[in-house]
């Protein structure tokens, strides 16, 4: 039978002797560390949870790393309103221009699918209703959810309709397509970095020319976009009207960046006599 524990083998006297010998060789006890007695202010008590965790600090940074800002870029009212959407903005202005291309799919008896392209100007605002501040001493607050109202105007390429059979086919076309939209956007901000990426889900109505009918009807507008701060992003957008569906993939830039592009393009066309 094997011994189960060391205490089964050793008499108390022997073990006490060995233990006292070891303890005699140990260093003397040091005084208690004073840092255990630091007083903590109530203002510095951090909340705990995923919404309160800030980005991990790093020992290295870009040479051009902006100084820690207490306020977002191009903001007023202590960050209450931003002219360029930002990670820590409580409310933001939306002003952008975009271009996109895709397909126009009429009803099957109205003709084949044709290419479609458009340029768009968009405006509106967003708010962040549920922003949480990590503690009272820090001014930056953050929340993943954003909500807003948007309106946009687009000029797209025209429509072609071909009705009837091969013997008696009626062909018609338009030069362009004008679209006006009003929609609500829900945003999900994906991080707390400056100019963070966010997913935008936009749903609303679109009023537009329908094929070659000459009629303007209301339809549904839906868009899924990924934005990078407020400076730009890419989107997949669709307008769904009666017998007329358009889906485009596009790129969007804030008005501060897109404005000069529009101005230069118009200046070039005008100076060249093309307008």
């Amino acid at each position: 039978m094997y011994p189960r524990t060391q205490s089964d083998l050793v008499s108390p006297t022997v073990s006490a002797f060995a233990l006292s010998s070891l303890l005699a060789a140990s260093p003397a006890a040091e005084p208690a560390d004073d840092t255990d007695l630091v007083e903590v202010s109530e203002d510095d008590v951090d909340e705990y949870g995923p919404f309160f965790v800030e980005e991990a600090p790093s020992d290295i940074e870009f040479l051009a790393q902006p100084r820690p800002r207490t306020l977002p870029v191009l903001s007023v009212g202590n960050g209450s309103f931003c002219f360029v959407e930002g990670t820590f903005c409580k409310a933001s202005m939306i002003l952008s221009a975009d271009i996109g291309a895709g397909i126009r799919a009429p009803a099957s008896d109205e003709g084949p699918d044709i290419p479609y392209a458009q340029f768009t100007f968009r405006g509106g605002f967003t708010v962040r209703p549920a922003m949480i501040r990590p503690n009272r001493s820090r001014r930056k607050s953050w929340g993943a959810w954003g909500f807003g109202l948007l309106s946009s105007w687009s000029r797209g390429t025209g429509s072609i309709t071909q009705r009837g059979d091969a013997q008696s086919q009626e062909v018609d076309s338009t030069d362009s397509t004008t679209v006006f939209r009003i929609a609500a956007v829900n945003q999900m901000w994906l991080s707390k970095r400056n100019h963070a990426a966010h997913l935008d889900f936009t749903f609303g109505g679109a009023r537009s020319d329908v094929l070659t009918s000459g009629e303007k009807l209301w339809g549904t507008h839906a868009e899924l976009a990924m934005g990078f701060g407020g400076w730009g992003g890419m989107f997949l957008s669709g307008d769904f009207l009666d017998r007329d569906t358009r889906v485009v993939l596009g790129f969007r830039g804030h008005g501060i960046a897109a404005g000069p592009i529009v101005a230069m393009a118009l200046a070039g066309l005008a100076a060249g006599g093309a307008l």
Binding site: M264, A267, G268, A271, G272, G273
Partner: peptide, 11 residues
């Protein structure tokens, strides 16, 4: 340069 090229090309 870009705007000038654009305009000259049109004309």
């Amino acid at each position: 340069a870009a705007v000038a090229t654009h305009a000259v090309t049109q004309r």
